[in-house]
Amino acid sequence: MNHPTEEELVLYHYGDAGDGTGTAAIDEHLRACQACQAGLDEVRRTLAAVDQLPVPDRGDHYGAEVWARIQPGFARHSPTWRERLFPTLTPQRLAWIGAAAALFFAAFVAGSRVPWQRFGVAPAPPVAQTPAAASQPTAADRERVQANVLLMAVGDHLERSQVTLSELVNTPGGPEVDISDEQQRARDLVSENRLYRQTALRTGEPAVASVLDDLERVLVEVANGPSTMNEAEFDQVRKRIDQQGIIFKVRVFGERVREAESRPIVRAGIRG
């Protein structure tokens, strides 16, 4: 196999490198490649250093201390009728849910017009085949598999973008706000986004391309902006992201992709 990436080595360390085949391939590679083995050793030394961080021991009486602090709170809390009926629905959450529902509805209406078959999410039309022919992958099968791989990649990309933008808008304000971390992630996402958008255009997926286009504008703005700013400047950035509703758009579209991705698309004949 090729040299494993840094991400694959980290996941390998935790036993999360994928199925047994992936792990076995990395095992074999590490036996032959000193550079990768050294990289893995460095990851392990870093994590061993992290393990040296002690946790303060609170002692045997900690339970009594915690009890003394929480017990008065039991009596104070008497739930209102609203809490009894809707224990987790605050007015703010209800407003968010309302906005999300409106966007879901809009996405549903728009989505019903999207030719999802091109992404391989609709079942293939029945084709009469001989048993021998059925076991051979056709060009259409291969195209659907490729489309599904793209679909999964777009789904992951949308989710990463959503996490990055959500963390950005939820960054607490202050005299100086540092967004250098989100900015670096936005830079990484811009190049991926461009690739997926171009692929979506090439494969005739205007709805996908349109969401990716909106997302790209926001990512580029974040990536090219200042990494530190005062509270007012940061509020402007946050407002612009909120006004475009891009986080909701990405979330809603990501849900659709996820749903499409979970449907079976490949005939048993080409799975093995």
């Binding site: 840094e6 991400e7 980290v10 996941l11 999964m152 992951d156 990463r160």
Partner: peptide, 11 residues
Amino acid sequence: LRTGATKHSIF
């Protein structure tokens, strides 16, 4: 998070 995003966060 989905598995891909979880793996990426850990990485």
